[in-house]
């Protein structure tokens, strides 16, 4: 992380940019904003995609450039970093609170990443989530896939409301 005033100020600006699909979260909350630094007067911003096919990367890039230009930073270079791959464990505590307040259940702990063959999982998923509407832990998964790549669909057995859940990855 840069220690120059340029880098520090730019980081503060970049940290306010929100995710286009989860607008209650900033890119910093989501863990997508990996670094902001000053390289010889150019603001270098590093972001990482949530999923390989995340269609929001282009908008994130444009939003970061616009925000930094508006704040007076003329030279901005937004770079993609692929490794290490994004994990839902990088969503901040603040981000988790904002998700729940927005009606989306935050993820639990991501599965441990191991080398070697990936074990098959044939049973019902063991994920749990608390209903963001009524707070009941008695919820069931409707589908592992939802309106965006990063979410699953669940339903509360108590208040019967459907809700989305950021699935662990």
């Amino acid at each position: 992380m840069a220690t120059s005033a340029l880098g520090t100020d730019a980081r503060a600006v970049a940290a306010t940019v929100t995710d286009p699909e989860l607008p209650m979260l900033t890119l910093a909350d989501l863990g997508v904003l990996r670094d902001v630094r000053d390289e010889d007067g150019t603001v270098v911003v590093e972001i990482t995609p949530t999923y390989s096919g995340c269609p929001a990367m282009g908008v994130m890039r444009a939003d970061l450039v616009h925000a930094l230009h508006r704040a007076g930073f003329a030279d901005v270079d937004v770079r993609t970093v692929l490794s290490p791959a994004w994990s839902t464990d990088w969503i901040s505590d603040d981000g988790r609170r904002k998700l729940a307040a927005g009606g989306i259940a935050p993820p639990g702990r991501a599965p441990v990443r191991t080398s070697g063959p990936v074990p098959l999982s044939l049973g019902a998923t063991r994920r749990t989530a608390t209903c963001p509407q009524c707070g009941s832990p008695d919820t069931e998964e409707v589908s592992e896939f939802s309106a965006t790549a990063c979410k699953a669909m669940r339903r509360c057995r108590v208040c019967l409301e459907p809700f989305e859940h950021v699935k662990e990855i």
């Binding site: 444009a62 937004v78 993609t80």
Partner: peptide, 11 residues
């Protein structure tokens, strides 16, 4: 999603 898709390996 923009007028053009960014090159996914940009940077």
């Amino acid at each position: 999603f923009g007028t053009g898709f960014d090159e996914p390996l940009a940077g």
